[in-house]
């Protein structure tokens, strides 16, 4: 693990000098994971590849600003996610704030799932969520961002993100119930 980190640090240092071989090696280390992140947001091969291309170009151009405060993967993923969200916003999709904040009871009913539920069914149910709910769910449950980070990315208040996340989980539970019952 330490060797991998050392190798990665060396690659990053070379990339900062504009070494294209190092850029390629760093790209190969992360492309699969980042592609899946982009795909979850964009929902199509073409759009995911497009977004990923732009995100990698941006990352290589801004790599000198990477100071190692987080892992390189987390830094790169943030660029990919931000780029995907801005592309989605271009399609005039807005992440709306909810006016009324429900009482705390809404959060107490936690959504549970059977351990043996096939992942394909869960993936399909996530894909079928409305776009806003899918974004919040993906950012929180899959990409494991904190609510404070999600709030910053979507320009929504933190409490709104929490409510939207809980609603997305409920919607997901309904969809899974319907699929399994059918």
């Amino acid at each position: 693990m330490e060797q991998t980190i050392a190798l990665q640090d060396r690659l990053i240092a070379k990339c900062k000098k504009g070494d294209s071989k190092a850029q390629y090696q760093l790209y190969m280390l992360y492309v699969d994971a980042m592609y899946n992140v982009a795909y979850r947001f964009m929902q199509s091969k073409f759009d995911a590849e497009d977004a990923l291309q732009e995100a990698f170009v941006k990352a290589f151009q801004k790599i000198s600003s990477f100071k190692g405060e987080s892992t390189f993967g987390a830094w790169l993923k943030r660029i990919v996610v931000n780029h995907c969200l801005s592309e989605i916003r271009k399609c005039k999709i807005t992440f709306k704030d909810i006016d009324e904040i429900p009482n705390k009871d809404i959060f107490e009913d936690d959504v549970r799932i059977e351990d043996e539920t096939p992942i394909e069914i869960v993936k399909k149910a996530i894909d079928e969520l409305p776009q806003g709910a899918r974004m919040v769910f993906t950012l929180k449950a899959i990409e494991e961002y904190k609510f404070s980070e999600i709030s910053e990315m979507l320009a929504l208040s933190e409490s709104n993100c929490k409510v939207q996340y809980h609603r997305s989980k409920k919607l997901l539970r309904e969809k899974l119930r319907n699929t399994i019952n059918n």
Binding site: Y27, D32, A33, R40, E49
Partner: peptide, 20 residues
């Protein structure tokens, strides 16, 4: 298992390289 998609790595790299 959620990360099941595979990109066309070489094609994507060519586009990135050209763009850079």
């Amino acid at each position: 298992e959620l990360d099941s998609q595979l990109p066309d790595r070489e094609k994507l790299w060519n586009s990135i390289e050209n763009s850079l």
